[in-house]
Design a protein around this nucleic acid. Sequence first.
DNA 1: TATGATTTTTAGATATATCTAAAAATATTT
DNA 2: AAATATTTTTAGATATATCTAAAAATCATA
Lengths: 218, 218
Amino acid sequence: MLSFAEENYLKTIYHLSEEIDGAVSTNAIAESLNTKAASVTDMIKKLSNKGILSYQKYRGVHVSESGKKAALQVIRKHRLWETFLVDKLKFNWDEVHEVAEQLEHINSALLIKRLDEFLAYPKFDPHGDPIPDENGEYKSKPQVALNHVKADTIGIIVSVKDTSNAFLKYLDKIGIYLGAKVKILEKVEFDGSLEIQIDSKKTVFISKEVSENIWISE
Amino acid sequence: MLSFAEENYLKTIYHLSEEIDGAVSTNAIAESLNTKAASVTDMIKKLSNKGILSYQKYRGVHVSESGKKAALQVIRKHRLWETFLVDKLKFNWDEVHEVAEQLEHINSALLIKRLDEFLAYPKFDPHGDPIPDENGEYKSKPQVALNHVKADTIGIIVSVKDTSNAFLKYLDKIGIYLGAKVKILEKVEFDGSLEIQIDSKKTVFISKEVSENIWISE
DNA sequence: TATGATTTTTAGATATATCTAAAAATATTT
DNA sequence: AAATATTTTTAGATATATCTAAAAATCATA
Ligand SMILES: [Mn+2]
Ligand SMILES: [Mn+2]
Ligand SMILES: [Mn+2]
Ligand SMILES: [Mn+2]
Protein backbone atom coordinates (compact mmCIF):
# COMPACT_ATOMS: atom_id res chain seq x y z
CA MET A 1 0.00 0.00 0.00
CA LEU A 2 1.28 3.40 -1.01
CA SER A 3 0.45 6.62 0.84
CA PHE A 4 -1.11 9.61 -0.94
CA ALA A 5 2.28 11.32 -1.09
CA GLU A 6 3.95 8.21 -2.47
CA GLU A 7 1.25 7.79 -5.12
CA ASN A 8 1.62 11.43 -6.17
CA TYR A 9 5.38 11.11 -6.52
CA LEU A 10 5.06 7.85 -8.44
CA LYS A 11 2.50 9.25 -10.87
CA THR A 12 4.56 12.35 -11.55
CA ILE A 13 7.78 10.40 -11.99
CA TYR A 14 6.02 8.00 -14.34
CA HIS A 15 4.72 10.88 -16.48
CA LEU A 16 8.18 12.46 -16.59
CA SER A 17 9.76 9.13 -17.55
CA GLU A 18 7.37 8.88 -20.51
CA GLU A 19 8.39 12.31 -21.78
CA ILE A 20 12.13 11.79 -21.73
CA ASP A 21 14.39 8.85 -22.53
CA GLY A 22 17.02 8.57 -19.77
CA ALA A 23 16.69 8.76 -16.01
CA VAL A 24 14.36 11.26 -14.34
CA SER A 25 16.23 13.94 -12.41
CA THR A 26 15.61 15.10 -8.87
CA ASN A 27 15.07 18.69 -9.96
CA ALA A 28 12.56 17.76 -12.67
CA ILE A 29 10.50 15.91 -10.06
CA ALA A 30 10.77 18.78 -7.61
CA GLU A 31 9.59 21.26 -10.22
CA SER A 32 6.64 19.10 -11.31
CA LEU A 33 5.48 18.63 -7.75
CA ASN A 34 6.17 22.17 -6.56
CA THR A 35 8.40 20.87 -3.85
CA LYS A 36 12.10 21.04 -2.94
CA ALA A 37 14.88 18.81 -4.22
CA ALA A 38 15.72 17.72 -0.68
CA SER A 39 12.19 16.38 -0.19
CA VAL A 40 12.44 14.54 -3.50
CA THR A 41 15.67 12.84 -2.48
CA ASP A 42 14.02 11.58 0.71
CA MET A 43 11.02 10.24 -1.15
CA ILE A 44 12.88 8.55 -4.00
CA LYS A 45 14.97 6.72 -1.41
CA LYS A 46 11.78 5.47 0.16
CA LEU A 47 10.25 4.44 -3.16
CA SER A 48 13.39 2.72 -4.32
CA ASN A 49 13.53 0.77 -1.05
CA LYS A 50 10.03 -0.40 -1.88
CA GLY A 51 11.18 -1.56 -5.32
CA ILE A 52 9.04 0.96 -7.16
CA LEU A 53 11.93 2.99 -8.51
CA SER A 54 15.53 2.12 -9.27
CA TYR A 55 17.85 4.79 -8.04
CA GLN A 56 21.54 5.56 -8.13
CA LYS A 57 22.78 8.53 -6.16
CA TYR A 58 23.28 11.59 -8.35
CA ARG A 59 22.04 9.60 -11.38
CA GLY A 60 18.27 10.07 -11.20
CA VAL A 61 15.60 7.37 -11.14
CA HIS A 62 13.87 4.88 -13.41
CA VAL A 63 10.41 3.46 -12.75
CA SER A 64 10.50 -0.32 -12.20
CA GLU A 65 8.03 -2.74 -13.77
CA SER A 66 5.99 -2.93 -10.57
CA GLY A 67 6.19 0.85 -10.33
CA LYS A 68 4.77 1.23 -13.84
CA LYS A 69 1.91 -1.05 -13.00
CA ALA A 70 1.09 0.89 -9.86
CA ALA A 71 1.41 4.25 -11.66
CA LEU A 72 -0.96 3.13 -14.41
CA GLN A 73 -3.54 2.11 -11.85
CA VAL A 74 -3.46 5.60 -10.30
CA ILE A 75 -3.74 7.12 -13.78
CA ARG A 76 -6.61 4.75 -14.56
CA LYS A 77 -8.46 5.92 -11.47
CA HIS A 78 -7.76 9.58 -12.22
CA ARG A 79 -9.12 9.33 -15.76
CA LEU A 80 -12.13 7.21 -14.84
CA TRP A 81 -13.12 9.77 -12.20
CA GLU A 82 -12.66 12.62 -14.69
CA THR A 83 -14.92 10.78 -17.09
CA PHE A 84 -17.49 10.24 -14.35
CA LEU A 85 -17.46 13.93 -13.43
CA VAL A 86 -18.04 15.06 -17.01
CA ASP A 87 -20.37 12.32 -18.24
CA LYS A 88 -22.52 11.89 -15.16
CA LEU A 89 -22.14 15.00 -13.01
CA LYS A 90 -22.04 17.55 -15.84
CA PHE A 91 -18.69 19.03 -14.91
CA ASN A 92 -16.94 21.05 -17.57
CA TRP A 93 -13.61 19.62 -18.74
CA ASP A 94 -11.71 22.37 -16.98
CA GLU A 95 -13.33 21.61 -13.61
CA VAL A 96 -12.38 17.97 -13.18
CA HIS A 97 -8.64 17.78 -12.61
CA GLU A 98 -8.43 19.07 -9.03
CA VAL A 99 -11.19 16.80 -7.81
CA ALA A 100 -9.73 13.80 -9.67
CA GLU A 101 -6.42 14.50 -7.94
CA GLN A 102 -8.21 13.67 -4.69
CA LEU A 103 -10.43 10.86 -5.95
CA GLU A 104 -7.54 8.97 -7.59
CA HIS A 105 -6.30 7.97 -4.12
CA ILE A 106 -9.50 6.24 -3.00
CA ASN A 107 -8.63 2.64 -2.45
CA SER A 108 -11.25 0.09 -3.47
CA ALA A 109 -10.94 -2.41 -6.29
CA LEU A 110 -14.69 -2.99 -6.31
CA LEU A 111 -15.36 0.73 -6.61
CA ILE A 112 -13.18 1.08 -9.70
CA LYS A 113 -14.55 -2.07 -11.29
CA ARG A 114 -18.13 -0.85 -10.83
CA LEU A 115 -17.33 2.71 -11.85
CA ASP A 116 -15.78 1.44 -15.08
CA GLU A 117 -18.88 -0.66 -15.72
CA PHE A 118 -21.20 2.26 -14.87
CA LEU A 119 -19.37 4.45 -17.39
CA ALA A 120 -19.63 1.67 -20.03
CA TYR A 121 -15.87 0.98 -20.13
CA PRO A 122 -14.66 4.31 -21.53
CA LYS A 123 -11.38 4.24 -23.45
CA PHE A 124 -10.57 7.97 -23.28
CA ASP A 125 -11.00 10.67 -20.66
CA PRO A 126 -12.52 14.15 -21.22
CA HIS A 127 -9.16 15.46 -22.48
CA GLY A 128 -8.68 12.64 -24.97
CA ASP A 129 -6.14 10.79 -22.82
CA PRO A 130 -6.36 6.99 -22.91
CA ILE A 131 -7.69 5.15 -19.84
CA PRO A 132 -5.54 2.13 -18.96
CA ASP A 133 -7.44 -1.09 -18.22
CA GLU A 134 -7.07 -3.17 -15.04
CA ASN A 135 -3.83 -4.61 -16.46
CA GLY A 136 -2.43 -1.18 -17.27
CA GLU A 137 -2.94 -1.62 -21.01
CA TYR A 138 -4.29 1.10 -23.27
CA LYS A 139 -4.36 2.21 -26.88
CA SER A 140 -3.74 5.76 -28.03
CA LYS A 141 -5.41 7.13 -31.11
CA PRO A 142 -2.99 7.95 -33.94
CA GLN A 143 -2.65 11.69 -33.58
CA VAL A 144 -0.56 14.68 -34.47
CA ALA A 145 -0.23 18.22 -33.10
CA LEU A 146 -1.88 20.98 -35.14
CA ASN A 147 1.44 22.79 -35.55
CA HIS A 148 2.88 19.74 -37.32
CA VAL A 149 0.42 19.49 -40.17
CA LYS A 150 0.36 21.55 -43.34
CA ALA A 151 -2.26 23.93 -44.72
CA ASP A 152 -5.50 22.39 -46.00
CA THR A 153 -5.22 19.44 -43.62
CA ILE A 154 -8.56 18.32 -42.21
CA GLY A 155 -8.89 16.30 -39.00
CA ILE A 156 -10.84 15.56 -35.86
CA ILE A 157 -9.61 16.92 -32.53
CA VAL A 158 -8.81 13.87 -30.39
CA SER A 159 -6.88 15.25 -27.44
CA VAL A 160 -5.56 18.34 -25.70
CA LYS A 161 -2.17 18.22 -24.02
CA ASP A 162 -2.44 21.23 -21.72
CA THR A 163 -5.22 20.54 -19.24
CA SER A 164 -4.94 23.76 -17.24
CA ASN A 165 -8.10 25.68 -16.42
CA ALA A 166 -7.00 28.68 -18.42
CA PHE A 167 -6.25 26.73 -21.60
CA LEU A 168 -9.46 24.68 -21.53
CA LYS A 169 -11.61 27.73 -20.84
CA TYR A 170 -9.95 29.45 -23.79
CA LEU A 171 -10.75 26.49 -26.03
CA ASP A 172 -14.37 26.66 -24.87
CA LYS A 173 -14.45 30.33 -25.76
CA ILE A 174 -13.19 29.86 -29.29
CA GLY A 175 -15.41 26.83 -29.85
CA ILE A 176 -12.87 24.00 -29.79
CA TYR A 177 -13.88 20.67 -28.25
CA LEU A 178 -12.97 16.98 -28.58
CA GLY A 179 -14.56 15.57 -31.71
CA ALA A 180 -14.71 18.89 -33.55
CA LYS A 181 -13.73 18.86 -37.21
CA VAL A 182 -10.92 21.25 -37.94
CA LYS A 183 -9.34 22.49 -41.17
CA ILE A 184 -6.08 24.40 -41.41
CA LEU A 185 -6.83 27.43 -43.59
CA GLU A 186 -3.50 29.19 -43.31
CA LYS A 187 -0.20 28.75 -41.59
CA VAL A 188 1.78 31.94 -40.90
CA GLU A 189 5.44 31.14 -41.49
CA PHE A 190 6.66 34.10 -39.42
CA ASP A 191 5.37 32.99 -36.00
CA GLY A 192 3.80 29.60 -36.69
CA SER A 193 0.30 30.86 -35.87
CA LEU A 194 -2.69 29.31 -37.65
CA GLU A 195 -6.02 30.25 -39.08
CA ILE A 196 -8.35 27.30 -38.67
CA GLN A 197 -11.95 26.52 -39.44
CA ILE A 198 -14.07 24.63 -36.93
CA ASP A 199 -16.91 22.33 -38.05
CA SER A 200 -16.91 23.98 -41.53
CA LYS A 201 -18.19 27.17 -39.91
CA LYS A 202 -16.39 29.53 -37.61
CA THR A 203 -12.78 30.45 -38.36
CA VAL A 204 -10.35 31.43 -35.61
CA PHE A 205 -6.70 32.39 -35.27
CA ILE A 206 -4.56 30.48 -32.79
CA SER A 207 -0.96 30.96 -31.72
CA LYS A 208 1.71 28.33 -32.27
CA GLU A 209 1.74 27.64 -28.52
CA VAL A 210 -1.96 26.83 -28.61
CA SER A 211 -1.59 24.70 -31.74
CA GLU A 212 1.07 22.55 -30.05
CA ASN A 213 -1.48 21.51 -27.46
CA ILE A 214 -4.28 20.52 -29.80
CA TRP A 215 -3.90 17.09 -31.40
CA ILE A 216 -5.93 15.75 -34.28
CA SER A 217 -6.45 12.49 -36.05
CA GLU A 218 -6.33 12.99 -39.84
CA MET B 1 -9.96 23.34 6.51
CA LEU B 2 -9.86 20.22 8.62
CA SER B 3 -7.47 17.33 8.02
CA PHE B 4 -8.73 13.76 7.53
CA ALA B 5 -7.81 12.93 11.12
CA GLU B 6 -9.57 16.02 12.46
CA GLU B 7 -12.71 15.24 10.43
CA ASN B 8 -12.73 11.67 11.74
CA TYR B 9 -12.43 12.80 15.33
CA LEU B 10 -15.11 15.44 14.87
CA LYS B 11 -17.57 13.03 13.28
CA THR B 12 -17.06 10.44 16.01
CA ILE B 13 -17.34 12.99 18.81
CA TYR B 14 -20.50 14.39 17.23
CA HIS B 15 -22.08 10.92 17.04
CA LEU B 16 -21.15 10.23 20.68
CA SER B 17 -22.56 13.59 21.77
CA GLU B 18 -25.90 12.68 20.14
CA GLU B 19 -26.05 9.40 22.08
CA ILE B 20 -25.43 10.82 25.54
CA ASP B 21 -26.49 13.97 27.34
CA GLY B 22 -23.44 15.44 29.12
CA ALA B 23 -19.88 15.92 27.93
CA VAL B 24 -18.13 13.30 25.80
CA SER B 25 -15.29 11.58 27.66
CA THR B 26 -11.76 11.04 26.43
CA ASN B 27 -12.03 7.29 26.87
CA ALA B 28 -15.29 7.03 24.94
CA ILE B 29 -13.67 8.79 22.00
CA ALA B 30 -10.57 6.60 22.22
CA GLU B 31 -12.67 3.46 22.21
CA SER B 32 -14.79 4.59 19.25
CA LEU B 33 -11.75 5.44 17.20
CA ASN B 34 -9.61 2.48 18.26
CA THR B 35 -6.94 4.80 19.48
CA LYS B 36 -5.33 5.72 22.81
CA ALA B 37 -6.55 8.24 25.35
CA ALA B 38 -3.30 10.21 25.08
CA SER B 39 -3.85 10.71 21.35
CA VAL B 40 -7.39 11.86 22.02
CA THR B 41 -6.24 14.46 24.53
CA ASP B 42 -3.84 15.89 21.95
CA MET B 43 -6.49 16.05 19.26
CA ILE B 44 -9.25 17.56 21.39
CA LYS B 45 -6.86 20.32 22.43
CA LYS B 46 -6.27 21.04 18.77
CA LEU B 47 -9.97 20.98 17.89
CA SER B 48 -10.89 23.16 20.84
CA ASN B 49 -8.23 25.69 19.82
CA LYS B 50 -9.97 25.78 16.45
CA GLY B 51 -13.30 26.50 18.14
CA ILE B 52 -14.83 23.22 17.03
CA LEU B 53 -15.08 21.71 20.50
CA SER B 54 -15.35 23.25 23.93
CA TYR B 55 -13.08 21.53 26.36
CA GLN B 56 -12.26 21.69 30.03
CA LYS B 57 -9.44 19.55 31.31
CA TYR B 58 -10.66 16.33 32.90
CA ARG B 59 -14.26 17.31 32.11
CA GLY B 60 -14.69 16.01 28.56
CA VAL B 61 -15.81 17.93 25.47
CA HIS B 62 -18.91 19.43 23.88
CA VAL B 63 -19.29 20.07 20.15
CA SER B 64 -19.66 23.80 19.37
CA GLU B 65 -22.21 25.18 16.93
CA SER B 66 -19.60 25.50 14.19
CA GLY B 67 -18.41 21.99 15.05
CA LYS B 68 -21.91 20.61 14.61
CA LYS B 69 -22.23 22.26 11.24
CA ALA B 70 -18.91 20.83 10.09
CA ALA B 71 -19.74 17.37 11.46
CA LEU B 72 -23.07 17.32 9.65
CA GLN B 73 -21.36 18.17 6.37
CA VAL B 74 -19.03 15.19 6.75
CA ILE B 75 -22.03 12.99 7.61
CA ARG B 76 -23.88 14.41 4.60
CA LYS B 77 -21.02 13.45 2.32
CA HIS B 78 -20.70 9.98 3.86
CA ARG B 79 -24.39 9.22 3.38
CA LEU B 80 -24.61 10.68 -0.12
CA TRP B 81 -21.67 8.52 -1.20
CA GLU B 82 -23.24 5.43 0.38
CA THR B 83 -26.41 6.19 -1.56
CA PHE B 84 -24.43 6.60 -4.77
CA LEU B 85 -22.66 3.29 -4.26
CA VAL B 86 -25.89 1.39 -3.72
CA ASP B 87 -28.18 3.20 -6.17
CA LYS B 88 -25.75 3.69 -9.05
CA LEU B 89 -22.88 1.24 -8.60
CA LYS B 90 -24.94 -1.70 -7.31
CA PHE B 91 -23.05 -2.13 -4.08
CA ASN B 92 -24.79 -4.15 -1.39
CA TRP B 93 -25.60 -2.20 1.80
CA ASP B 94 -22.90 -4.05 3.72
CA GLU B 95 -20.18 -3.06 1.21
CA VAL B 96 -20.47 0.72 1.32
CA HIS B 97 -19.27 1.90 4.71
CA GLU B 98 -15.51 1.43 4.31
CA VAL B 99 -15.43 3.17 0.94
CA ALA B 100 -17.64 5.99 2.21
CA GLU B 101 -15.19 6.47 5.09
CA GLN B 102 -12.66 7.46 2.44
CA LEU B 103 -14.96 9.35 0.09
CA GLU B 104 -16.41 11.52 2.86
CA HIS B 105 -13.12 13.44 3.03
CA ILE B 106 -13.08 14.53 -0.61
CA ASN B 107 -13.25 18.28 -0.60
CA SER B 108 -15.33 19.87 -3.38
CA ALA B 109 -18.55 21.79 -2.88
CA LEU B 110 -19.42 21.42 -6.56
CA LEU B 111 -18.95 17.67 -6.41
CA ILE B 112 -21.37 17.27 -3.53
CA LYS B 113 -23.92 19.62 -5.07
CA ARG B 114 -23.86 17.69 -8.34
CA LEU B 115 -23.83 14.30 -6.66
CA ASP B 116 -26.91 15.26 -4.65
CA GLU B 117 -28.62 16.38 -7.85
CA PHE B 118 -27.54 13.22 -9.71
CA LEU B 119 -29.05 11.09 -6.95
CA ALA B 120 -32.28 13.16 -7.08
CA TYR B 121 -31.84 14.71 -3.62
CA PRO B 122 -32.13 11.56 -1.48
CA LYS B 123 -33.36 12.03 2.09
CA PHE B 124 -32.14 8.71 3.53
CA ASP B 125 -29.08 6.54 3.02
CA PRO B 126 -29.07 2.76 2.38
CA HIS B 127 -29.30 2.07 6.12
CA GLY B 128 -32.27 4.40 6.62
CA ASP B 129 -30.18 7.18 8.18
CA PRO B 130 -31.23 10.72 7.27
CA ILE B 131 -29.00 12.75 4.92
CA PRO B 132 -28.47 16.31 6.19
CA ASP B 133 -28.93 19.06 3.58
CA GLU B 134 -26.34 21.73 2.77
CA ASN B 135 -27.42 23.60 5.92
CA GLY B 136 -27.10 20.53 8.10
CA GLU B 137 -30.84 20.08 8.43
CA TYR B 138 -32.59 16.73 8.18
CA LYS B 139 -35.78 14.97 9.21
CA SER B 140 -35.90 11.51 10.75
CA LYS B 141 -38.81 9.24 10.14
CA PRO B 142 -40.85 8.48 13.28
CA GLN B 143 -39.54 5.07 14.24
CA VAL B 144 -39.29 2.55 17.03
CA ALA B 145 -37.05 -0.47 17.67
CA LEU B 146 -38.64 -3.88 17.11
CA ASN B 147 -37.96 -4.88 20.70
CA HIS B 148 -40.10 -1.97 21.92
CA VAL B 149 -43.35 -2.88 20.21
CA LYS B 150 -45.87 -5.47 21.31
CA ALA B 151 -47.10 -8.61 19.59
CA ASP B 152 -49.33 -8.16 16.53
CA THR B 153 -47.71 -4.84 15.65
CA ILE B 154 -47.29 -4.30 11.92
CA GLY B 155 -44.77 -1.84 10.46
CA ILE B 156 -42.32 -1.00 7.72
CA ILE B 157 -38.61 -1.35 8.34
CA VAL B 158 -37.14 2.15 8.01
CA SER B 159 -33.64 1.85 9.43
CA VAL B 160 -30.99 -0.43 10.87
CA LYS B 161 -28.78 0.81 13.68
CA ASP B 162 -25.93 -1.67 13.44
CA THR B 163 -24.25 -1.19 10.06
CA SER B 164 -21.53 -3.81 10.48
CA ASN B 165 -20.88 -6.24 7.62
CA ALA B 166 -21.85 -9.21 9.73
CA PHE B 167 -25.18 -7.78 10.82
CA LEU B 168 -26.23 -6.58 7.37
CA LYS B 169 -25.25 -9.87 5.73
CA TYR B 170 -27.33 -11.68 8.35
CA LEU B 171 -30.33 -9.47 7.55
CA ASP B 172 -29.87 -10.29 3.85
CA LYS B 173 -29.84 -13.98 4.70
CA ILE B 174 -33.09 -13.91 6.65
CA GLY B 175 -34.74 -11.65 4.08
CA ILE B 176 -34.91 -8.35 5.94
CA TYR B 177 -34.44 -5.11 3.98
CA LEU B 178 -35.48 -1.44 4.22
CA GLY B 179 -39.10 -1.08 3.17
CA ALA B 180 -40.04 -4.63 4.11
CA LYS B 181 -43.37 -5.08 5.92
CA VAL B 182 -42.96 -6.84 9.21
CA LYS B 183 -45.45 -8.25 11.72
CA ILE B 184 -44.60 -9.35 15.25
CA LEU B 185 -46.06 -12.81 15.63
CA GLU B 186 -44.74 -13.66 19.07
CA LYS B 187 -42.57 -12.12 21.72
CA VAL B 188 -40.79 -14.56 24.05
CA GLU B 189 -40.85 -13.03 27.55
CA PHE B 190 -37.94 -15.14 28.76
CA ASP B 191 -35.19 -13.73 26.49
CA GLY B 192 -36.94 -11.01 24.50
CA SER B 193 -36.53 -12.90 21.23
CA LEU B 194 -39.18 -12.46 18.52
CA GLU B 195 -40.94 -14.44 15.85
CA ILE B 196 -41.71 -12.11 12.99
CA GLN B 197 -43.31 -12.37 9.59
CA ILE B 198 -41.78 -10.58 6.61
CA ASP B 199 -43.95 -9.31 3.74
CA SER B 200 -46.85 -11.54 4.88
CA LYS B 201 -44.80 -14.55 3.86
CA LYS B 202 -41.69 -15.93 5.50
CA THR B 203 -41.50 -16.11 9.28
CA VAL B 204 -38.17 -15.92 11.13
CA PHE B 205 -36.92 -15.89 14.70
CA ILE B 206 -34.63 -13.10 15.80
CA SER B 207 -32.81 -12.51 19.08
CA LYS B 208 -33.45 -9.47 21.26
CA GLU B 209 -30.06 -8.08 20.25
CA VAL B 210 -31.04 -8.20 16.59
CA SER B 211 -34.47 -6.69 17.29
CA GLU B 212 -32.87 -3.69 19.03
CA ASN B 213 -31.14 -2.81 15.77
CA ILE B 214 -34.13 -2.98 13.46
CA TRP B 215 -36.41 0.07 13.56
CA ILE B 216 -39.85 0.30 12.06
CA SER B 217 -42.43 2.92 11.37
CA GLU B 218 -45.88 1.77 12.48
C1' DT C 1 41.93 19.49 -16.97
C1' DA C 2 41.19 22.88 -13.53
C1' DT C 3 37.60 26.05 -12.04
C1' DG C 4 33.26 27.71 -11.44
C1' DA C 5 28.30 26.69 -11.92
C1' DT C 6 24.72 23.55 -11.20
C1' DT C 7 22.64 19.65 -9.26
C1' DT C 8 22.01 16.54 -5.67
C1' DT C 9 22.49 14.92 -1.13
C1' DT C 10 22.93 15.36 3.84
C1' DA C 11 22.14 17.42 8.33
C1' DG C 12 19.16 19.27 11.18
C1' DA C 13 14.29 21.61 11.95
C1' DT C 14 9.29 21.78 11.95
C1' DA C 15 4.48 20.06 11.78
C1' DT C 16 1.06 16.27 12.14
C1' DA C 17 -0.51 12.20 14.19
C1' DT C 18 0.42 8.52 16.70
C1' DC C 19 2.27 5.65 20.79
C1' DT C 20 3.98 4.08 25.90
C1' DA C 21 4.85 5.07 30.55
C1' DA C 22 4.48 8.03 34.34
C1' DA C 23 2.15 11.67 36.81
C1' DA C 24 -1.92 14.09 38.15
C1' DA C 25 -6.75 14.59 38.82
C1' DT C 26 -11.14 12.66 39.67
C1' DA C 27 -14.28 9.03 41.19
C1' DT C 28 -15.44 5.13 44.12
C1' DT C 29 -15.33 2.38 48.05
C1' DT C 30 -14.34 1.19 52.53
C1' DA D 1 -12.37 11.22 55.06
C1' DA D 2 -8.82 8.16 53.75
C1' DA D 3 -7.47 4.64 50.70
C1' DT D 4 -7.94 2.70 46.35
C1' DA D 5 -9.33 2.53 41.61
C1' DT D 6 -10.14 4.77 37.34
C1' DT D 7 -9.64 8.34 34.12
C1' DT D 8 -7.13 11.86 32.05
C1' DT D 9 -3.13 14.44 31.09
C1' DT D 10 1.77 15.13 30.40
C1' DA D 11 6.40 13.89 28.99
C1' DG D 12 8.99 11.96 25.82
C1' DA D 13 9.39 8.71 21.45
C1' DT D 14 8.47 7.32 16.74
C1' DA D 15 6.97 7.74 11.86
C1' DT D 16 5.74 10.55 7.77
C1' DA D 17 6.38 14.43 4.98
C1' DT D 18 8.04 18.62 4.51
C1' DC D 19 11.57 22.60 4.74
C1' DT D 20 16.36 25.51 4.82
C1' DA D 21 21.18 25.70 4.76
C1' DA D 22 25.44 23.55 4.02
C1' DA D 23 28.28 19.96 1.97
C1' DA D 24 29.35 16.90 -1.74
C1' DA D 25 29.15 15.32 -6.38
C1' DT D 26 28.62 16.14 -11.15
C1' DC D 27 28.58 19.03 -15.23
C1' DA D 28 30.11 22.76 -18.27
C1' DT D 29 33.55 25.57 -20.12
C1' DA D 30 37.47 28.23 -20.35
MN1 LIG E 1 -6.37 15.35 -14.83
MN1 LIG F 1 -7.45 14.11 -18.07
MN1 LIG G 1 -21.52 4.33 6.94
MN1 LIG H 1 -25.11 4.63 6.43
